[in-house]
Amino acid sequence: MVALASIGDGLSRCLTTPPVEATAAFQQNAAMLHLRDISKSYDGQPALSPTDLHIASGSTTVLIGPSGCGKSTLLRLIVGLVRPDSGTVTFRGEPMSAQNILLARQRMGYVIQEGGLFPHMRVRDNVILMARYLRRDTGWIEARLEELTDLVHLSMHLMDRYPSELSGGQRQRVSLMRALMLDPELLLLDEPLGALDPMIRYQLQQELRAIFAGLGKTVVMVTHDIAEAAFFADKLVLLRSGRIVQQGSIAELARSPADSFVTEFINAQRGPFEALGEVLA
């Protein structure tokens, strides 16, 4: 709890509050992201059937489903790494296009499974690359770097190492720092903890949730682990074969499943824990 409180302190410092009227206008629209009729296929194989998705400002949404269900494709469509065959992505009221995607990405943070850190750059350079490119003030960059190291619990001396000299958990923390450097409104995470061993994964889950809560940012996360999804999500979006099967809180999905697949998916992953509970009882 003490640790969490100190994180909170760090957070309030590193939050650069947006102008009041913009925030107000925003929350009236309440849509950070709106995907309309968006679809994508690869070599004739549909990866995502025409899909609508609404993501509210300040919420944490988790995209979940079995492998190949289209959850990663959905996330990559949002950040523009994949171009949709049809439909539009609207980010903060603006339809995304080749012209505005670069600016939009600067307001999004993106973290992937193995971090995607640039191996030829020291950790510090990885984190501040974009800020440097945009010629942000050096003093501001240094201050922001320090805030972020506090936020993700890394010590400053690691900043001079290369990514290959860090542990997996440390690399994910750096990747998060890089995503947060420009204080984006939207944070996109594609299986951010998927490659970590269970103990570190558990610890990072706790910390990440605290960070999200403190920052108040809109978060979209992809995972295939229902427990992790339930732990983070305000809203779960369950996909199967390129379609959204059901959206809602974990309680809604458990209580009133849209079809038998929803129940099966939840139970399939809950199984081992219940089995463990029975054994212990």
């Binding site: 790494l81 990405r105 600067q106 999004m108 993106y110 992937i112 499974q113 995607g116 191996p119 490119y133």
Partner: peptide, 13 residues
Amino acid sequence: SPIVESAAALGLP
């Protein structure tokens, strides 16, 4: 590709 995509996702031209 994760490295190439990470660079793209940062918004670098």
